[in-house]
Write a protein that binds this DNA or RNA. Structure first.
Lengths: 203, 203, 203, 203
DNA sequence: AATGAATGAGGTTTCATTCAT
DNA sequence: GATGAATGAAACCTCATTCAT
């Protein structure tokens, strides 16, 4: 029963961890995980090298903590507010905008972490199971509930939508500034297109 | 008629370089660039460590050569056979299938190289200028020639299409096997959707 | 009065650098710069290989630090005590003894560093500009002030004297023990000979 | 008895060895023994890397062959032509000029080899026993025969003279161009000085 | 808890030497 | 005899991690 306050020192620890993680995100995303040195992270965080190890067991643990940053909020399902009454195009648009904005806000983290997700199978599986897979499942579920006699499987539709968003982010990460400039237009076009051949269930 | 044979030793060098590049692709894509050691590449190629350096000045040069491997074939524009007479949906579909198949065939290399492209700004710029940018430009040009009073800018349309494809590949690289399973369906849906709100110029 | 103490940690660093430099001098002079490995220096200094690099950026930097060791004290001009009242022979003798003793005390360092000075043009120029040239200039100046209607140019005289001393040291470095045994006699003879045909200005 | 012609192929071998040695001298003296690569020597000689090893067992053997270059002619005692009738100053001058010219002609070889002589004890002993020691002995002998009641031991005198010459060369190797410019004057001064306090035996 | 100097395993790269052609 | 590609031992250097202060 004595759980009361989550321990002052624990809170402090948590705050300092967050501080280091933020520094790590900046450094990792700028230099890449392997080129970034613990010394760089420590300097960015304004602490000593050794101090990092008081909060993270290893450099890889720190990376996993950064990865977890995505988890934290990504998991939070979009507030499907009052989407019941909107048409499909608007629903798609809202959803895609929401997702894209979220990813875009996390662009730095993704840049820091994506290379490792792609190249390290251990991390890849972790990320896939923790984030990608559930997100896709959620999407499939949502679509199957919302669509009437769809001409595409919800698996395919989910991947078309998710893929489009991932792709836009990737284009941006790869250096294409135009993508960023035309986001609104692109998302609008995508939403309209995807909605063209589908019909919403009447609630 | 005798196109001066490009020097026997040059040919040999080229073949051996290719041999090492192929080994590097396998090793890089399995372990990732940084976890892959020159020793690994050499072993995979069946040669001594030092021999690698007879063909590539440094590990990074080897990576660039791998990167170049993408260039080699990527540049080849799709044979726009008799696409003149087809409708827009079919045209999109053919194009996307072509591109996707190409990227998918290079999946291993991309997995090896993408992390570095994302995290190393030097390589990123190189790759963007050499491949991404020209490809996007080509797309923009093609669309502007083909469409009648499009409701989207060719920049946006290009990125919607390219992004979708990149995104599918990325989903697959991240471990989603479903993407691979449903490719045909997804591409079909994408083509149909994108074509829905556009009209082709009458030739 | 309290001359700000030069920072404790700076002092420590300086002491440790000196410790490594001393070890390097011993190892370089015994094995020669190239045959001496960083591992050897570290072992001689009783530290780990990597620690050397906490104090010197590279092996060559360490060599330059060793070189600088000569600079440190070489610069100190001989105390021309009361040389005003002495005859030329005595003045030459005192000077030569002073110089020779100094060089002889630095014999180990010179043996460590001389080969590189001779064979590395970068280091050669550094050493020449920092030490040889100023020393010769000083000599020329001193002689021109001290001699009456000399039959030799001060440039030539300086080089005769400096050369003699360098030569003796070199003979010794090359393994001639007799040189060391007869130093006193040789220097005496040199001083007397050089003074024979010159006359001192009357102060 | 069948020694006849020294075998044509032996002659060829000897010529080619000399060719490689000359290339080595140029390369070693410019870059220093350790910085010089066998590839550099081969290129300078206009042959393949491997060919060097048909004529010298190892890089060090090549260095010893270069060292031997000094031996070849150095050993040849100066033709003490008709020095009987000259005064001591002239005799010294002639001798020193002869020696100095010889050393100066071999400057490149010395620059190539001296660093190793100083830093490699094996080579040092070889060189000392083969060249320095006999030369000094010869000098001692000559002086003891020529001087009447000398005020210096022949050991000391020999070293004073030899040292002066070595020293001038060293000054020059270290980069002092003035030495070269004033050689005549310096040697003249040295000869006159050394002769000042000595007297020649009357033949 | 924070520090940062010390550590040393391990990686990239060099290059003398070998040897099949 | 000449060649030069292949070799692989060994060196320099980096940097994640430890630990005494």
């Amino acid at each position: 029963m004595t759980e009361t306050k989550p321990n002052l020192s624990e809170q402090l620890t948590s705050i300092k961890q967050k501080h280091i993680i933020d520094a790590a995100i900046r450094v990792f995303s700028e230099k890449g995980f392997h080129r970034a040195k613990i010394k760089d992270v420590a300097k960015e965080a304004g602490i000593a090298d050794g101090t990092v190890y008081n909060y993270f067991a290893s450099k890889k643990e720190l990376l996993l903590a950064v990865l977890n940053e995505l988890n934290e909020t990504e998991a939070r399902p979009a507030q499907f507010e009052n989407l019941n009454s909107t048409d499909l195009e608007t629903l798609f648009l809202k959803q895609m905008q929401h997702r894209f904005n979220f990813m875009f806000a996390k662009k730095e983290v993704l840049q820091a972490v994506l290379p490792e997700i792609i190249s390290d199978s251990e991390i890849r599986e972790l990320y896939f199971d923790a984030i990608i897979s559930p997100t896709l499942k959620m999407g499939e579920q949502a679509f199957s509930e919302v669509l009437t006699e769809p001409s595409v499987s919800s698996e395919a539709l989910t991947r078309a939508l998710a893929g489009s968003l991932f792709g836009l982010l990737l284009l941006n990460l790869l250096g294409d500034d135009e993508t960023e400039k035309h986001v609104a237009e692109i998302l609008g076009f995508l939403a309209k297109s995807f909605a063209s051949n589908l019909e919403r269930k009447i609630a």
